[in-house]
Design a protein around this nucleic acid. Structure first.
Lengths: 206, 206
DNA sequence: AAGCAAATTAAACAAATGTTTAAATCAATG
DNA sequence: CATTGATTTAAACATTTGTTTAATTTGCTT
């Protein structure tokens, strides 16, 4: 592990930013978390904003990584989607605060999306969108816009992790029990989405 | 319309808090939005935090209102769910920033959930949960935990509005086009969820 | 060991923040 | 009109914030 001061600050910033959000934490808090002086943060990164941009972009990249990997693989679309949901739940179980962090920062500060565009290129280059379009033409998949397909998958993967505080109260479960429920939820979501996207579906499990 | 100073401050606070979040705005900003002096905010509400709690609780109540109304109605479960999704999309089209506001504040400050518990009581009292349990016993509905049912509905209603900045970039659409897509999405979501929740479903549309 | 650049620190700065104070204004009552 | 209480304001307060400065330490080369 790279343990230079610069790297330590980046790790601390990642933790603090993701947990509390840009507006809700101070440079001094990040420095303290890294075990160093405030001035060092600006010595290495010039400003809180500049540091944030670096962290945010790296989070976005990691966040999209599983999607890119799965899409670039050679599985048939149906298995790609199943695998993608599997991977998303795996990633989000380890990093449950990421989606709320990203969506919150993006809606408060839309220019933050800039650093994300290069990652998006890779998804487009994978050719999944064209592949889906072909299956839709042939009647194997339901005719619908790719935006809606993307939205179905992302909604059902990310929202359950974002809503933990709300759902725990509604259904009186603690954190451990909630993550247990999400394992079951993953299976429901996979079945439901595949059944809906693919027509005349002999593999559908009732 | 009630145009007392107190009411004007509350309206300004609602706008500012929802748009920017608690940590990302100042008392002075709220006062300016209301067209009055900073000191008045504390004169009427004692502190920024106290004012926030009042606003947050009222937002939570309004947010859950459609759910309570639909659940207390006399429609069969299937129609209740269909109607609920309709109402959610209607509400969120008018108030798209509410879900990210609520989930963000809740995850940064979990005690904020307190003011929500009374609203939750009303949902429980409606008896929907028992009604669903009965249909599950009879085999009309798929056997699954109520937490997962709730999660399916909320994910597919709220997330699409939360993810607007992300999705607009991914699919190169502007705000107007995006909300247009969400109309189509509402129909997909309704079909998909009903098809999944209700078994042996003659009304299912392929 | 001396010198030097990079790394690190304590201290200071101006601006912004939540909150309070004390004075001014207003509206209604006697 | 004078008085009283509620409302509104400008100003001040102490803290915190992001950022900078200038001094000190560190590690390494000669």
């Amino acid at each position: 592990m790279n343990c230079t001061a610069e790297e330590k600050i980046k790790q601390a910033a990642l933790q603090v930013f993701v947990k509390k959000g840009f507006a809700n934490c101070s440079s001094r808090e990040i420095a303290k978390e890294a075990g160093m002086n405030v001035a060092l943060v600006n010595y290495y990164f010039r400003s809180k904003s500049k540091l944030f941009t670096i962290i945010f972009d790296s989070v976005m990249a990691e966040f999209m990584q599983s999607m890119v990997q799965v899409f670039n693989g050679s599985l048939p679309i149906r298995e790609k989607i199943r695998f993608l949901i599997e991977r998303e739940y795996e990633f989000l179980t380890k990093n449950p605060e990421i989606p709320i962090f990203i969506l919150n920062e993006l809606s408060r500060n839309p220019e933050a999306i800039e650093g994300f565009k290069p990652v998006m290129e890779k998804v487009m280059e994978s050719g999944v969108f064209e592949e889906v379009a072909k299956l839709q033409k042939s009647g194997e998949m339901r005719q619908m816009d790719m935006l809606n397909v993307t939205l179905l998958i992302m909604s059902n993967c990310q929202y359950p992790f974002m809503a933990k505080p709300l759902m725990s109260v509604i259904h009186h479960v603690d954190e451990v029990a909630y993550y247990g429920q999400l394992e079951a939820h993953k299976n429901h979501v996979t079945q439901m989405i595949l059944n809906y996207l693919f027509l005349n579906d002999s593999k559908a499990i009732k």
